[in-house]
Structures are given as C-alpha cells and as structure tokens.
Simulated scan of single mutants.
Amino acid sequence: MTTLWTYLTDNWSQISAWTVTTLWLASLPVLAGLVLALPCGWLAYRHRWARLPFVSAMGVVYTVPSVVLFLVLPGVLGTKILDPVNVVIALTLYSFALLVRTVADALAAVPELTLETAAAMGQTTWQRFRRVHLPLAVPVIGAGLRVAAVSNVSLVSVASVIGTAQLGQLFIAGNNISSLTPIVLGLIFFTTIAFVFDALIVLATRLVSPWHQAVTR
C-alpha cells in the first residue's frame, strides 16, 4: 500500500490528467450512443423490416476488436492515430451497438393495453412515446446503459496500446519498468470508475422512474 501511495503522489499531476481524459472518453460515447439508439431503437420497434438490419449490423460492429477499430478509424476519418476523437467514435459505435437492441426490446416490453389506454385518452403517437412508452421503458434502458458504461471503461484502457493518453498508460508504464505498482494502481482506478458510473446510472434510473421502485416494493 505504501508503494502504491508513493507512486501515486510522485506522479499525481500526470495521473490526474489521465483520469480526467479517461472519464470523458468513457462517458461521452455512452451518452452519444444513447442519443443515437433512442430513435433507431424506436424505428426497430415500430417496423419489423428495420429491426433485423439494425440488430444484425450492430452485432457485427460489436464483434470487431477494439484495437482494429482504433487503427482503422484514422484512415477513414482522416485524423491522427493519437487523436482522442478516434476512441470517442469507436466507443460510441460500441455503445450504440449495445443500446439499439436494448431500446427496441425495452419499448416492446411495455404492455400494449397501457398504450391502447393512452391512445383512447386522445394522446398522439409522439405524446404516447414521450409520456408513456419511454418512461415505462426506462428501467430496461437503464440496465443496458449500465452494461455499456462498464464495457466502455474497460475498452478505454485498450486505447493505451495506440498511445492515447489516459489511465491505461499505467499498464504500459508497469510493463516498461517491470513493476506491478502502476498496473495495480490502474486496476484500482478503472474498477473505481466503473463502480461510480454504474452507481450513477442506477441512481439516475431511480430518479427518472420512481414508480418502478414503488411497484417493486
């Protein structure tokens, strides 16, 4: 423990900068993936012809190794290989691939009788989606977000292989100096960030859908 603390204090300025970068590299793609997945998931739910292409295509995207995607994107986007934007776009694709099916399944899980009741009350399709459909789907979407967020945290560490400056560099440093100290420190940081992200999503889900907790109790 003393060794970990000493290494942390000696390299605090660098590690703190890496932590900030890691936080936004892991969180921004989840938010972007959710924004993209909501309309696409709704489309896949509403139209059977759209579900198979979306789900199949996104399944293929998620099977592509992250390192390959990190290396291919600069050639496609015209960016430099060390640009963080490559990591953001790659992780956004992974988040979208996970969430589009989750959103479609969450919307499909809403009881049809509830939607028919809302329609009978004179609500339009948009009103039903905003006031009934989406709120009732929040718990399932929240569960998918938790998976996407934790997956992104682990995938960010892989970006250190291509030289992106974030906490994954601790693993590279440990390998270079043949020391477990920075590696263990990196594991602690990434595990903590994953737990924090997961807890924040759980809290946000409960705040947005308090009715779900009442029904569960």
Results as ranks from 00 to 15, higher is better:
L28Q: 00
V64I: 15
V208Y: 00
I172G: 08
Q123F: 10
I183K: 05
S178R: 12
L71S: 14
L38E: 02
S95K: 05
R46Y: 10
F189P: 09
S13W: 02
L187K: 01
A57D: 00
G78A: 05
L31C: 11
F129E: 04
P39N: 02
A108Q: 11
I15E: 10
L134T: 05
W18C: 06
T19Y: 12
N11T: 10
P29T: 07
R48Y: 12
Q213D: 13
F195M: 06
T63H: 07
G168N: 04
R206C: 02
R128M: 07
P74N: 08
L36P: 14
Y94I: 10
T114G: 05
A32W: 02
R130Y: 01
V150F: 02
R48I: 12
D83M: 10
V140D: 07
V138E: 00
T205D: 10
A106I: 10
L43I: 04
P111K: 02
T79W: 09
L113Q: 13
W211H: 03
A165Y: 13
V55P: 03
I141M: 01
L71T: 15
A32D: 00
E116G: 10
C40H: 00
A199C: 07
S66R: 06
P53S: 02
F190V: 15
V196H: 00
F197V: 01
T22K: 04
W18R: 11
V132L: 00
L115Q: 13
Y62Q: 09
L93M: 10
S151A: 14
V35K: 04
D198C: 06
A109D: 09
A106G: 09
M58C: 14
T92Q: 08
P139M: 13
K80V: 03
P84L: 11
A173Y: 05
Q169G: 08
L180R: 07
W24I: 11
V196N: 00
L52W: 07
Q166A: 07
G41H: 09
L77I: 07
T181C: 04
H212R: 04
A120R: 05
L36D: 14
L145H: 06
G144N: 06
L77W: 07
W211Q: 07
F190E: 14
V88C: 12
R146I: 04
L28A: 04
L98K: 03
Y45H: 15
V158H: 01
L4Q: 13
A109Y: 02
L91R: 09
F70E: 11
S160I: 13
S178Y: 12
T216Y: 07
T164Y: 06
F190C: 15
G33K: 04
Q213V: 05
V87I: 11
A143I: 08
A194V: 09
S13I: 06
M58V: 07
V64M: 08
L36V: 15
V150A: 08
L107E: 06
W126I: 15
V103A: 01
F54D: 03
